[in-house]
């Protein structure tokens, strides 16, 4: 059995890639807290991006077809819609960004915990003491 074909591990991997990428985008927003004219950016939500990636995946109707890329999950960096901005045109809200950082860290913690739990379950099934 190929462990990468287990859905939960596959999903965990994608989610981790998403949290890594999001952390990078949020770090950029916070680093540019005082840059005039800077608009904060964000990734599309994981659920939405996953749905979109599943919908837009090219079908392989011939054996010679290429599988296509699944990079849609991490590609689009949307400028955030913010109503307020400072007189210098900077629209980064520190509280909002820090909430997102915490949110991303929490979801990453959840994913790693679930991953470890599942690896532990496989170990148990194989007769290893955890």
């Amino acid at each position: 059995m190929d462990p990468t074909r287990i859905v939960i591990f596959d999903l965990a991997e994608q989610r981790l890639a998403w949290t890594d990428r999001r952390q990078e985008v949020l770090a950029q927003n916070i680093a540019n807290l005082d840059t005039p004219g800077f608009r904060p950016r964000d990734l599309p939500s994981f659920a939405g991006a996953l749905r979109q990636a599943a919908m837009a995946a090219p079908a392989q109707t011939q054996p010679g077809h290429m599988a296509g890329t699944s990079g849609a999950l991490l590609a689009a960096m949307l400028p955030e819609q913010t109503a307020l901005h400072a007189p210098d045109g900077n629209a980064v809200s520190l509280d909002e960004q820090l909430v997102k950082v915490t949110e991303t860290a929490t979801s990453q913690s959840l994913v790693t915990s679930i991953y470890k739990k599942y690896v532990g379950l496989f170990g148990m099934a194989l007769g290893r003491t955890p």
Binding site: D20, Q23, A27, L98, V101, A105, T112
Partner: peptide, 27 residues
């Protein structure tokens, strides 16, 4: 004060990122 506040915000992101990295290694 503003510089101090922005500095701490960047530091907070760095700490959050570092703990994420530690958790990933913990896997």
């Amino acid at each position: 004060r503003e510089a101090e506040r922005s500095y701490s915000a960047n530091l907070a992101v760095m700490q959050a990122t570092r703990s994420m990295l530690t958790r990933t290694i913990g896997m």
